[in-house]
Simulated assay, not measured.
Amino acid sequence: MNASLNELSPKLKNTSSGFTLIELMVTIAVLAIIAGIAAPNISTQLADQRVKSTAATVANALKEAKVESIIRRQDIIFSYDNDGDDAGTIEIENDSDTIATYQYDANSTITSTASQIEFKPSKTADAMVYTICDSNDSALPRQVIITAVANISSQLGGSCP
């Protein structure tokens, strides 16, 4: 009886288990379609994250400049430079030295009516709106707003060139 269990029937010997070439091709085609649909969404999310990160960096640098002007009792200048292919640079400085330097992603650009703003020890500043955009046009721009009394806020909005 055990001998008959060890031998496979001729019908089972001829059939093979596994996937056919057509089944594998269909599976790969379905995966390619799903990846093609998901890829643009992922790149847009990454661009939105870059914009959000750059806006947070700008807001933090502005807050630091505001606090430094109060602590040092000096006028403090906040400036930015979109370096083209290299990472952008934000500098906080007074008349004699650089207080802090920040870097932001090269794909992000900051635009405003002036490239620098001055914070005064009297807790005032030049009113300004900074718009942060990304090289990916599908990313939503953000704005960092500074009021005349040096209140700093960030929000979605603005338009990119």
Rank of each mutant, 00 (worst) to 15 (best):
149 V>A: 12
16 S>L: 11
120 K>Y: 03
80 Y>R: 12
132 I>F: 09
101 T>P: 00
22 I>S: 14
49 Q>V: 01
95 D>Y: 03
82 N>P: 04
53 S>A: 06
156 L>P: 10
61 A>L: 01
36 G>L: 12
52 K>P: 10
35 A>C: 10
136 N>I: 06
92 I>E: 07
8 L>K: 15
48 D>C: 02
156 L>E: 15
69 S>P: 04
160 C>V: 04
73 R>P: 01
101 T>V: 13
99 I>Y: 02
75 D>K: 04
119 F>I: 02
20 T>Q: 06
136 N>S: 08
4 S>T: 13
37 I>S: 09
59 A>C: 01
50 R>P: 10
76 I>F: 03
3 A>I: 11
13 K>D: 00
5 L>Y: 02
119 F>H: 09
103 Q>W: 00
106 A>C: 08
147 T>D: 03
24 L>T: 12
153 S>G: 04
124 T>P: 08
161 P>A: 12
56 A>S: 14
47 A>N: 11
143 Q>C: 10
17 S>I: 13
128 M>Y: 00
83 D>I: 14
137 D>N: 08
79 S>N: 02
89 T>S: 04
39 A>V: 03
128 M>E: 10
13 K>N: 07
110 I>V: 02
107 N>S: 14
59 A>R: 11
98 T>M: 09
144 V>W: 06
65 A>K: 14
53 S>L: 00
110 I>R: 12
137 D>E: 08
101 T>M: 03
132 I>K: 11
82 N>F: 00
155 Q>T: 05
145 I>W: 01
137 D>T: 03
86 D>R: 15
13 K>V: 13
40 P>N: 10
49 Q>L: 01
133 C>Q: 04
93 E>R: 14
127 A>R: 05
35 A>Y: 00
4 S>F: 09
159 S>G: 05
71 I>N: 14
91 E>M: 10
91 E>H: 01
11 K>H: 04
152 I>A: 07
115 S>T: 09
54 T>I: 03
